[in-house]
Design a protein around this nucleic acid. Structure first.
Length: 782
RNA sequence: GGGCCAGUAGUCUAGCAUGGUUAGGACGUCGCUCUUACGCAGCGAAGGUCGCAGGUUCGAGUCCUGCCUGGCCCA
């Protein structure tokens, strides 16, 4: 018998990862088979936005998605695991303006779009390279218009779907255009959704301005941060408990400069301690104004136009920017002796998430998708989906409950999916094209030649594009093949799982539910997996300005994909909280790779044979059965952290430290019969095979290499997940075995004996069934 | 200001739903060992007022209340 290990090297070679990945690609072992009889498990992976290369958080969460895909394959599913890249929207426009040092408005639309594309290509390639190095088992890395194909959200085919959903929603009467108060960013020159509004604290002047009471010419003083909105003052309020002003109830104040009068009333929104306690409500200075005037049902006067300039209603200030108007009006009030004082205060200002510029509230004609009327139905759908972790569901519910206006889906930008509409120049009739084609109305002729209403022949194409979430919220429809095979889509919708970050629950997840309800009256997902964030080792958010960003490529270079992958599992569960990332800890966890390697190297000395297990073998096989059951339970709940910890602890602490030591002599054939030796060989291999199978979803490169080197045959990633088939009755002895071995090791140490030296110890009665192995292991003398 | 989540040794984490001996494990640290898979090893040790303060209870990491800190979201 030639007892040399089939694994020769003493440790895992990182360069093998690339070779194994290439082989997977060559053999196409993860490619998607549409005709498979297996049940479908579909994963609606979040296309990362590629204005910059993917970061460590992407690397972490995509590894977890990959574990889902690999585990489900081992459970007998046909797994749809596509890779998509998100390329629509503002971030790339902003990035393009920065990198080329240009402004969107100075270039032709076509020219600007091409500049955006060139950047997207560059960053997209870097991102895909990182994902490949991580060993993701996506169905395809090449862009293909078929199930499992890699996709881009700015691709004509994807945009065709976005436009088709719009056409259907339009036909259902769910789309309307109307004048509404919108958040408007004067810098981005576009209406933005509530979701794109941020807040900053900054300093501003609180101006104390004299008004005259109409009834008796008495002076009252009102403090405001927005004096330029005096022309749009609608009402003045004070707190009902503020006794200074109860006498003013239902009286009227004359607005200075403009000399019209407004009503004074009490309202709890006014805070007595702010300014003088008297507050003017204008249309619109802030969200409070919007809310209050809506509540009181008062028609607004819009005083700011789309360029951030004052409109005619501002009188002599019309045409000025908001800030210019503010300065001028303050000067005028001062000259008229109406400005009592200025006070510097800290103020929360709503700003545009992209440009960081204060937003204004203006009237614009925008396109809306109805949502307010359907909140109950959407809540019901949310309730039908299973959430991991369950607490995350609350984020969605809270958001749905807070929705108060319909969704503005139009944007006045260039790099996005065009809204497919034309307008008859003669009569204004709206032309909605047929689905089936990707339309670019700003540069294409209208698909019909004559207006059905007035026979007019001239049309103007719509120039606006969709909110990017209008694209993204249809990803699950795209990946399930709606464009190419409606029957397949119908059979397999809803999608099995949506994995995504908690910060985009209110847009990506919510809008997907909304569109799914409108289009199909069905929940889009069976399961939703919500993750938190990867932060730096101090628990702080990673950001360019802090310089604490960890590049996943660096981590892979140092520890390999396998080191990184096992770290993602052993470090904790990202659905339960943020994960801290430190190189020291990745390095620590990566040591297990070497440990497993050497366990496999040892076992690979002995051939895989059939034999009847001895008592010690039965004991570890019982523990192995328990492990399989526990690990399956964890995998089923996407609790990969639990799964990895269980396998690791079994492998290191029970199997390697105790079982292997107990049977080493027997496996080498010292003072044991052939049958007993073969029993050890059998059990060692049985355990190793199971450990490799259990670990295959988490560390796919290492397990693939060990499996093929020792056992040959087809890829481990085409194997089924192991079944628990061994009797577990000896598991009750596990703690006693571990304690006894520990006791003997300790005793030898205390007595200054080497591990080989003989020792006189009493083996506990219940462990006597393992006596032969224990005796050989510790060199026990009677 | 409101909602949700988290807070357990230097670091990470299990336990909390169903309260019960000494709070389990890992990394790191320290000490020892030489053992025919592994020194990226083996064995062992030290290290905790379970965020703070009350309350319920014979008994609280676990249940209740309040507070503090951090994160995300909303206003």
């Amino acid at each position: 018998m030639n007892l040399t290990p089939r694994i020769k090297e003493k440790r895992w070679d990182l360069s093998l990862e690339e070779k194994i990945f290439e082989k997977w690609q060559k053999d196409g072992i993860f490619s998607f088979n549409k005709r498979s009889k297996k049940p479908l498990f579909s994963i609606d992976t979040p296309p990362p936005y590629v204005n910059t290369p993917v970061h460590i958080g992407h690397a972490y969460t995509y590894v977890w998605m990959d574990i889902m895909a690999r585990y489900k394959r081992m459970q007998g599913y046909n797994v749809l695991f596509p890779m998509g890249l998100d390329k629509n929207g503002l971030p790339i426009e902003v990035q393009t303006e920065k990198e080329f040092n240009i402004r969107m408005s100075e270039l032709s639309r076509q020219n600007f779009i091409e500049k955006c594309r060139s950047l997207l290509e560059k960053y997209g390639d870097i991102s895909l390279d990182t994902f490949k190095k991580l060993g993701l088992s996506c169905n395809s890395w090449d862009k293909k218009y078929e199930l499992g194909g890699r996709y881009d959200t700015d691709d004509p085919e994807y945009r065709r779907l976005t436009q088709e959903t719009f056409i259907h929603l339009w036909k259902k009467g769910l789309i309307y255009e109307g004048i509404k108060t919108v958040n408007y960013c004067p810098v981005c020159k576009t209406a933005i959704s509530d979701a794109e509004v941020e807040y900053v604290e900054d300093y501003t002047d609180l101006n104390y301005i004299k008004f005259k009471l109409k009834e008796n010419q008495e002076d009252i003083v009102i403090a405001t941060t927005r004096p330029e909105l005096l022309c749009a003052c609608k009402i003045i309020i004070f707190n009902p408990n503020d006794e200074r002003y109860t006498r003013l109830e239902n009286k009227h104040a004359i607005v200075p400069i403009y000399n019209y009068d407004v009503k004074i009333m009490s309202h709890p929104y006014a805070k007595p301690e702010f300014g003088t306690g008297l507050v003017m409500i204008c249309s619109y200075g802030d969200y409070g104004d919007v809310r209050l005037l809506r509540e009181l049902n008062i028609e607004p006067t819009y005083t700011i136009d789309e360029n951030g300039k004052m409109k005619e209603s501002a009188g002599k200030y019309s045409g000025l920017s908001v800030l210019e108007a503010r300065e001028r009006i303050i000067k005028d009030l001062e000259m008229m002796g109406l400005l009592l004082k200025k006070e510097r205060i800290k103020h929360r200002t709503p700003i545009c998430e992209r440009s960081k510029n204060p937003i204004e509230f203006i009237a614009m004609r925008e396109i809306y998708l109805k949502q307010v009327d359907y909140k109950d139905e959407i809540l019901k759908m949310a309730d039908e989906m299973k959430f991991y972790a369950p607490e995350s569901k609350q984020i969605l519910i809270d958001w749905i409950n807070s929705v108060s206006i319909d969704w503005v889906i139009s944007r006045r930008r260039y790099y996005g999916t065009e809204i497919p509409l034309w307008y008859c120049i003669n009569c204004g009739n709206v032309i909605l094209p047929k689905p089936g084609k990707y339309y670019q109305p700003w540069k294409e002729p209208c698909p019909i030649s004559k207006c059905p209403k007035c026979n007019g022949k001239d049309f103007k194409g719509e120039e606006r594009i969709f909110d990017t979430w209008f694209d993204s919220s249809t990803s699950e429809v795209y990946i399930l093949g709606y464009l190419w095979d409606k029957n397949y889509f119908k059979r397999n919708f809803p999608c099995s799982i949506r994995p995504q970050g908690k910060e985009i629950v209110r847009n990506w997840l919510y809008f997907t539910l909304l569109k799914s309800y409108h289009l199909f009256r069905k929940k889009p997902f069976e399961n939703v997996w919500i993750h938190m964030h990867v932060v730096d080792e101090k628990g702080e958010k990673m950001s360019k300005s802090k310089g604490n960003i960890i590049n996943p490529q660096d981590v892979i270079k140092r520890y390999g994909a396998e080191g990184f992958r096992i770290w993602t599992c052993l470090e904790g569960d990202i659905t339960k909280g943020d994960i801290r990332c430190s190189f020291e800890r990745i390095e620590g966890h990566a040591k297990f790779i070497t440990k497993l390697w050497n366990i496999a190297r040892f076992v690979s000395i002995f051939p895989r044979v059939k034999a009847k297990p001895k008592e010690t073998d039965k004991w570890i096989l019982g523990e192995l059965s328990k492990l399989i059951e526990d690990v399956k339970k964890s995998y089923d709940e996407y609790a990969f952290s639990d799964a990895a910890t269980l396998i690791r602890d079994f492998t290191w602490n029970l199997f390697a430290s105790n079982y292997i030591e107990m049977v080493k002599a027997r496996a080498y054939g010292q003072e044991f019969s052939k049958g007993e030796q073969r029993a050890a060989w059998f059990t060692l291999n049985e355990c190793l095979r199971t450990i490799l199978l259990l670990f295959a979803p988490i560390i796919p490169f290492l397990t693939e290499h060990l499996w093929s080197t020792i056992y040959g045959g087809k890829s481990i990633h085409h194997k089924r997940f192991p079944k628990a088939k061994w009797d577990k009755s000896l598991n009750q002895l596990t703690q006693k075995v571990v304690d006894f071995n520990s006791y003997v090791w300790n005793k030898k140490r205390e007595e200054g004996l080497s591990l080989k030296d003989p020792i006189r110890v009493k083996v506990p009665e219940e462990l006597m069934i393992f006596y032969e192995d224990l005796k050989a292991m510790h060199n026990i003398i009677d």
